[in-house]
Design a protein around this nucleic acid. Structure first.
Lengths: 233, 233
DNA sequence: TTTATTATGATAGTAAAGCTATCAAAATAA
DNA sequence: TTATTTTGATAGCTTTACTATCATAATAAA
């Protein structure tokens, strides 16, 4: 049995849907490889075109500019993660397991998922770690936000916030805790690799310690005296 | 009495020390204004030169490129924050107050500190919030790290990690918790302003709620059953 | 099967960004 | 007052970030 997972994203992300043509898929596939390799600042449509064997103008037919392409990739990643979280937590009875599952999925080094042909999830994971924040750290965040370009991330955040609320309905900051978890699952990984003195993880390389750190933190707050909304404990 | 706070930074950050000349100080002063205004991507040395009334080449005599200038500003900011944390916690007897003080200093919207003439701390705070991560999210993090260009951030992180260790010596992740606090003090602020659905803070605008969120989280973990290093609770 | 339509390739061109180099004038130090 | 350092002014070069045009190839409709 072959399952084919296809993720449909906000139309404003692109000029022409890259999922609907060979060239489009090649753009996605090779942009991931190239951005991971040389970094987003050095990445240009010209270099990508050379890599693929097409022309710069060809790529501009699909994406307005490289920032939009990054947004596309990042949105794809978060949609994919939300899908995984949804699937894995589906039949779980208790909120605790759901939270732990979410943490594991987010903080574990990703392996390439073969069900999505042209997207290499492992590389994409690294890109989101190293470049993901750049998708919103711009002067046009608010405009992009109005266009719903951050929806997948927000959806994931809201889903996990839902688990948090289920676990402890009186906790006052489910969304902030959720965004903290998601961010830190990625940032701590980045620190571990490049700036280890910001962490307590040697070159552990696996995400296990990060999972422990996050679980302890999350359940630490949620199990402590519940804070009543609007009041200091 | 007039106190003049001057912060000396790593020499590798610049070609010519900007603190030692009028032009240099103008570069610092106006780069802060301009980056905050138009964002780091749109910011160029040419525009800065026009703003100051000098030439592009003039600025290149001080900084190798705009990324190094950003690093300078960011390092200045973290050095300043560490100094503030150090001063404010100096005579505090207990670790709890020290942690709370650090959280407050990091998460409270900064006012312009008049003791540092050409640096506008309020604007700089916004820059670090919006552009700070770009100082390390590059393909040359490791090289920059070898050159000790992230030292001020690390020092701050280590200082707060020290408070954490003092508060609960058996807690296993003082550095990661510390970097999480520092990052979130800034990121949650950014979310609150631009992507509020990632948080639980309306347009509260003051950092008060963020402080409550962080305090609850930090003491939530630290007061929960202490984890023995290397062992799952 | 011919004819539209659409997708690609090839080429050109422009403005701005990101530098480096040179030389003279101005300010400062010896 | 001479020597040294710091600035200003100008030029130029490569790369990035795009837009435009036109021919050809692939695909769909008649």
């Amino acid at each position: 049995m072959e399952i084919n997972l296809s993720i449909r994203l906000n139309e404003k992300l692109y000029l022409r849907n890259p999922e609907e043509s060979e060239l489009g898929k090649k753009i996605l596939q090779y942009s991931i490889v190239l951005i991971e390799q040389i970094g987003f600042e050095s990445f240009t449509f010209k270099k990508l075109a050379q890599e693929i064997g097409t022309t710069e103008a060809g790529i501009y037919r699909y994406f307005e500019n490289k920032h939009r392409l990054l947004l596309y990739l990042v949105d794809w990643y978060w949609s994919w993660q939300e899908y995984r979280v949804m699937m894995e937590t589906k039949n779980m009875p208790d909120a605790e397991s759901k939270i732990k599952t979410a943490i594991s999925l987010l903080a574990t080094r990703v392996e390439d998922d073969l069900s999505t042909g042209h997207i290499n999830e492992k590389l994409l994971h690294d890109i989101v770690m190293s470049e993901g924040a750049k998708s919103w750290l711009t002067k046009h965040v608010e405009a992009d936000n109005k266009d719903k370009l951050f929806q997948p991330y927000k959806d994931l955040c809201a889903r996990i916030a839902g688990f948090v609320k289920a676990y402890n309905p009186s906790y006052a900051f489910p969304f902030s805790l959720s965004s903290t978890m998601i961010e830190m699952a990625h940032s701590q990984y980045f620190y571990m690799q490049h700036l280890p003195s910001l962490t307590d993880f040697g070159k552990a390389k696996s995400g296990d310690e990060i999972i422990r750190f996050l679980e302890q933190m999350v359940f630490g707050v949620l199990d402590s005296a519940p804070a009543i909304k609007g009041k200091k404990k």
